[in-house]
Amino acid sequence: MTDIETTTVSEEGYATTSQVGDFELSIDATDETGPNPNAVLVADYASCFLPAFRVGGNKEGHDDLGTIQIDAEADIDEGDDLSAIRFAIHVEADLSDDELDAIVDRAEDICHVHAALKPELHAEIEVHGGAF
């Protein structure tokens, strides 16, 4: 038995529609009708890392981090492959750099996308507490 099943269809061109459970995701390699696959991967990474960061905060004894926002950016090489990913994480709670670093360490261990990526694509992370 598999744990994840998706179906991806392209009727023409470079746009695809993926069925993921009850959800539909549109991706377009040309950015015309949806985000491109690299952009989706960066957004997926951030959307996995953010709840992992919140869980990491809970495990470090910080139950109320307030609003958290990840501004993600990435570099693409000449072959259109991702070559670097960076996260700027803005956290409402006003924590020390050491506390934030400990949460990042936990989040890196928790985030499944982080674990799935080759190490050279792990996000370079900077965190800003007291951000909102």
Score class of each variant (00 low, 15 high):
127 V>G: 01
94 D>W: 06
53 F>S: 07
42 V>E: 05
74 A>V: 00
107 A>S: 08
1 M>F: 09
13 G>P: 07
106 R>N: 14
78 E>M: 02
46 A>F: 08
92 E>F: 01
81 D>I: 00
23 F>M: 13
74 A>S: 15
91 V>Q: 02
23 F>A: 14
83 S>E: 15
114 H>A: 04
108 E>H: 12
36 N>H: 05
95 L>N: 06
114 H>K: 06
24 E>W: 00
78 E>P: 00
60 E>M: 13
43 A>V: 10
67 T>P: 00
46 A>T: 05
28 D>T: 09
60 E>G: 00
130 G>K: 11
86 R>E: 15
37 P>C: 06
30 T>F: 05
63 D>M: 10
60 E>W: 00
8 T>R: 01
57 G>R: 05
91 V>S: 04
45 Y>V: 04
50 L>K: 11
23 F>N: 12
70 I>T: 03
89 I>F: 03
22 D>S: 15
9 V>Y: 07
85 I>Q: 03
83 S>L: 00
79 G>W: 02
85 I>Y: 04
70 I>Q: 03
129 G>Y: 08
96 S>Q: 05
55 V>M: 14
119 P>S: 13
116 A>G: 15
24 E>T: 14
112 H>W: 09
88 A>Y: 02
50 L>V: 09
10 S>K: 07
15 A>F: 00
47 S>V: 02
75 D>H: 01
19 Q>S: 14
14 Y>S: 13
85 I>P: 01
108 E>T: 12
3 D>I: 02
81 D>F: 10
120 E>K: 11
111 C>G: 04
64 D>Q: 12
82 L>K: 01
54 R>T: 11
67 T>A: 14
31 D>P: 00
48 C>F: 09
19 Q>L: 13
14 Y>Q: 13
99 E>Q: 15
115 A>Y: 03
125 I>G: 03
87 F>A: 05
46 A>D: 07
25 L>G: 01
131 A>N: 06
131 A>G: 07
82 L>P: 03
23 F>E: 14
119 P>T: 10
69 Q>Y: 02
43 A>N: 12
108 E>V: 10
121 L>G: 06
58 N>P: 00
125 I>C: 07
18 S>H: 04
112 H>K: 12
122 H>I: 06
76 I>L: 13
123 A>K: 01
120 E>A: 11
127 V>P: 03
122 H>F: 07
125 I>S: 06
72 A>V: 09
4 I>S: 10
